Amino acid sequence: MTEPTPATIDVVAIGNAIVDVIARSDDAFLAQHALNKGAMQLIDAATAEQLYADMGSAIETSGGSAANTLAGLAALGKNCGFIGQVNDDQLGAVFAHDIRALGVRFATAPLSGDEPTARCLILVTPDAQRTMNTFLGASQYLPATAIDADLIRSAGILYLEGYLWDPQQPRAAMRAAIAAARDAGRRVAFTLSDNFVIDRHRADFLDLIDQGLIDILFSNEGEVQSLVQIDDFDAAVAQVAAKVPVLVSTRSEKGVIAVVDGIRYEVPAAPVAQVVDTTGAGDLFAAGFLAAHIDGRGVEDCLKLGAAAAAEVISHYGARPEADLNRIRDALFG
């Protein structure tokens, strides 16, 4: 590992380049299509076409977990870059335009051919639960050659999305990115994303942790328990926190905890007048936490800004912030 030089970019993220299609639904529709409420499942092209045809009127917006986090970070004034694969098609152009319009550097060359840009069909029920049905398309073909090692070495933090660990090519790309970040003395943040991802790649994730390759690990309550296959939340947190410098775990209305160098911190959930759509809650939490962390704030402040950013995004449809996150930050910290 080389001696770190000053970072010129705050965060570079690698993730699925997805366009979200969000529509209201009800439990009967979910049952009709045999969908597991509140979960995320991968679907093929034929299923995506059928489900899209059956959905009601929808909002289409660029998404993807890591890209959503960068949207929050950019809104909070951070300098960011994104690496992700789109196709040279209409949705690919939409995604590229949207993320660049945020001020995020995005230079991954698009694919040409039969694998269209990824899309996530999100059904939101009246209780604000979101059921996500993801067609990965081109995003699962991100090659290791797409990794801009110089860009990664220039960033203070490399942020990786667990969802993208599933396909083989992006997994190799992220391993190459981790190696580049580590060689440059940079920190690596990783979000576990979903229990189904953990079930498929638990051994890989534990190996990354055991090797000391993860500096900041984001999870929710169920994910941290699933990772170490322990039903007791506190016991699961203790086991994982012993191996990572920073462990963060969100607990919905029960608030959020972080364990940093063995010390546990906890703050309540931020108030929200009405929960409309929980899509992107974890993504924006990570954005708020990392933004405060980059600013050098204490752990509790990082948790508070994360909770406030999550509260903002669940108060409306879509996984990108609509309110001014800088005003929310300033109201918190003065």
Results as ranks from 00 to 15, higher is better:
Arg130Gly: 09
Val244Gly: 00
Val197His: 13
Cys302Thr: 05
Ala58Cys: 09
Val19Arg: 07
Arg182Pro: 11
Ala236Gln: 01
Gly137Val: 03
Pro126Ala: 12
Ile263Trp: 08
Asn220Val: 01
Ala176Thr: 14
Ala323Leu: 15
Asp301Glu: 15
Pro143Phe: 01
Asp199Gln: 13
Cys80Ala: 03
Tyr265Asp: 04
Asp166Arg: 10
Ile122Met: 04
Lys254Arg: 14
Ala181Asp: 09
Ala58His: 11
Asp301Cys: 10
Ala273His: 07
Ile43Arg: 10
Leu217Tyr: 03
Ala273Tyr: 01
Glu223Asp: 05
Gly81Val: 04
Leu111Arg: 07
Leu217Gly: 00
Asp277Lys: 05
Thr8Phe: 08
Ala287Leu: 00
Thr250Leu: 09
Leu160Ile: 10
Ala319His: 00
Gly72Pro: 14
Leu290Trp: 05
Ala286Arg: 00
Val86Phe: 09
Tyr163Ser: 08
Ala93Tyr: 04
Leu305Thr: 00
Asn16Phe: 03
Gln239Glu: 12
Ala310Val: 06
Ala310Cys: 06
Glu3Asn: 05
Leu142Thr: 01
Asp330Asn: 13
Glu322Gly: 12
Asp27Trp: 02
Phe218Tyr: 15
Gln50Glu: 15
Gln239Asp: 06
Cys302Ala: 08
Ala319Gly: 15
Leu151Trp: 12
Asp295Ile: 06
Ala307Lys: 01
Ile18Ala: 00
Ile209Thr: 12
Arg130Ala: 08
Val248Ala: 11
Leu247Ile: 06
Ala203Tyr: 06
Lys254Leu: 09
Ala310Gln: 02
Asp10His: 01
Leu51Glu: 10
Val244Ile: 08
Ala23Gln: 14
Leu192Tyr: 10
Ala66Ser: 11
Glu3Ser: 12
Pro6Asp: 00
Ile178Gln: 05
Ile178Asn: 03
Trp165Pro: 14
Arg105Glu: 09
Gln169Arg: 11
Ser226Ala: 15
Gly63Arg: 05
Val86Trp: 11
Asp199Asn: 07
Ile214Glu: 13
Ala138Thr: 06
Gln239Phe: 06
Ala184Tyr: 07
Ala189Asn: 02
Val12Ser: 10
Pro245Asn: 12
Val188Gly: 07
Asp207Phe: 04
Arg24Thr: 14
Phe135Arg: 13
Ala34Trp: 03
Arg119Thr: 13
Gly156Ile: 08
Ser249Cys: 12
Leu227Tyr: 08
Glu3Tyr: 07
Ala319Tyr: 02
Gly38Trp: 08
Pro116Ser: 05
Gly63Asp: 03
Gln225Arg: 14
Ala23Glu: 12
Gly282Asn: 04
Ala107Glu: 15
Lys304Glu: 09
Thr61Leu: 13
Val276Pro: 04
Val240His: 10
Ala236Thr: 05
Val124Gln: 04
Ala23His: 04
Glu3Thr: 14
Val244Leu: 03
Gly81Asp: 05
Ala31Val: 05
Gly262Gln: 03
Ala13Pro: 13
Asp127Ala: 14
Asp10Trp: 00
Val256Ala: 13
Asp98Val: 09
Asn326Met: 15
Pro321Lys: 11
Arg297Gly: 03
Gly137Tyr: 05
Ala287Tyr: 02
Met55Ala: 11
Asp283Lys: 01
Ala270Tyr: 07
